[in-house]
């Protein structure tokens, strides 16, 4: 498993990544199946978002505190702030238009 930018955060990072990956692997394929209607999708999304928070919320808070400190110490906080101002990227990027002539 990959390292954190700060060695002291690596154990928390790896615990968080494991938690996310295990949640995500259970999430993804049923999420595709639940996307047949907006209602089933919203019901499934809400349930799984709550589950993610319940499973990984605690380790996330610990890891986040550690990594935020490390980001600041490396002077990356200002660069991140600048990048966020230039391109917040809070809205998903739409899929490419489907070209009917292409398979």
């Amino acid at each position: 498993m990959s390292q954190s930018l700060s060695p002291e955060c690596t154990p928390l990072k790896q615990a968080y990544d494991s938690c996310f990956n295990s949640w995500f692997e259970g999430y993804l394929e049923p999420a595709i199946a639940a996307s047949t209607s907006a209602e089933t999708r919203a019901a499934y999304s809400k349930k799984k978002a709550d589950e993610f928070q319940a499973k990984c919320g605690k380790v996330w808070e610990e890891y986040k505190a550690c990594v935020q400190k490390a980001v600041k110490e490396k002077g990356l906080d200002k660069l991140l702030q600048q990048a966020r101002e230039e391109n917040p990227l809070v809205e998903p990027i739409p899929p490419l238009p489907v070209n009917p002539t292409k398979k």
Partner: peptide, 20 residues
Amino acid sequence: HVVSIDTIDRTVDPVTGIIR
């Protein structure tokens, strides 16, 4: 060349199911 990866923010949209 990739020596570290850190998640600094993550949200699971409870309506659309989109993970950012």
